[in-house]
Simulated scan of single mutants.
Amino acid sequence: MMGTPARKRRRTPAKEQTWSIPRLEEWGLSRGQQRLLVIIASVAGVLVAAVVLTFVVGSLGNDFVPQRATAAAISTQPRPDAYKGWVSPKLFAPIAQSKADPAPLTLKDIFAERVLKEGKITLKLAAGTKLDADCSVAVWGQGLVDQLAQSGCTQAARGVYASADGRYVAQYTLLNLRDTASADALVQSLTALHRGGWTNPLESGRARFPADGYTEASGHAMGHYAGLVWIGRTDGAEPGPKDDFVSLSLAVRGAEKVVFRRVVAATPPS
């Protein structure tokens, strides 16, 4: 899958810079908070690296090599056919430890926005959202259950979305773990582990993964959090030339705004 080409931006004189990034403004961050995120995420010449959604566009390009399930690993439980994991960027260093970010997650914080958009994709949050203090309830597969226990998982939040045109279904799961090392280990281990363990699907009306349908997934460590993206077509078919799974993945990751706010809250004032 090819990422969307970056648009050329007109250079603005330094004295006219307002430190305003549209994506972060949409998330309710002040210009001062935006500046703080840019400083945290400073990567030579790429200010947009402060936005993890853009980070994923670069990640899910030609380097996306699906890990397909084998015949020997066929399971009656729903799980993705393809998966790729990404370790935590330095941006999330302020929340590398859960003790630096002790406030528990709430469904209101994560799924406050019922409509998420990216490119031509519009996702609407279905009635299905769930927050479990027992992370084992949110997943299946003993290997994954054990991994979450070892990672000190205290919360698992899930939300399921359907696209406005009814073509796609997407589920986002946010896991509250002990630290970055635990989150990194989880998203990496799922490269193989997803064949025998994955998140339990939430179902609501047309927002459901079809039985035996093709789906893709990705895991993203963000400090002591791990976000799991699960996407597919509602008819279960594999994506064709007209299916933009990159934008679909980016759209559902709009639920990660809560993590960015926590980075700002955990960063000491300069």
Rank of each mutant, 00 (worst) to 15 (best):
M1A: 10
K8S: 14
R9N: 02
R11Q: 09
P13D: 09
A14Q: 11
A14E: 07
K15H: 10
I21G: 00
P22I: 01
E26Y: 05
E26P: 02
L29R: 02
L29M: 08
Q34F: 04
R35H: 13
L36C: 06
L36W: 01
I39P: 03
I39R: 15
I40K: 07
A41P: 00
S42R: 14
A44E: 12
G45V: 04
V46Q: 11
L47R: 13
A50W: 04
A50N: 13
V51S: 03
V51N: 08
F55R: 06
S59V: 09
G61M: 12
F64C: 04
R68S: 14
T76C: 04
Q77W: 10
P78F: 01
P78C: 06
R79V: 03
A82V: 06
Y83F: 15
W86N: 09
W86R: 13
W86Y: 15
W86D: 08
L91G: 00
I95A: 03
I95W: 00
Q97G: 05
A100Y: 10
P102A: 09
P102V: 10
T106H: 13
L107Q: 11
K108Q: 14
A112R: 10
A112F: 04
V115E: 12
V115S: 08
K117R: 15
K117S: 14
G119P: 01
G119E: 05
K120C: 07
T122Y: 03
T122H: 11
K124Q: 12
L125P: 00
L125Q: 09
A126T: 07
G128P: 03
D132N: 10
A133R: 11
C135T: 00
C135G: 01
S136T: 15
V139E: 04
V139G: 02
W140R: 03
Q147G: 04
L148T: 00
C153N: 01
A156E: 03
V160C: 00
Y161S: 09
S163I: 04
S163E: 02
A164V: 12
G166R: 01
Q171G: 08
T173H: 06
L175Q: 02
L175I: 07
D179C: 06
A181H: 12
D184S: 07
A185E: 11
A185L: 11
V187H: 03
Q188Y: 11
S189K: 13
H194E: 03
H194Q: 11
R195Y: 09
G197R: 06
G205A: 14
R206D: 15
P210M: 08
D212M: 15
Y214E: 10
Y214G: 04
Y214F: 15
E216H: 14
M222H: 06
G227L: 06
R233T: 05
T234N: 12
G236F: 01
E238P: 07
P241Q: 13
K242T: 11
V246I: 13
L248M: 09
L250M: 14
V252P: 00
V258F: 08
F260G: 04
A266L: 05
S270K: 08
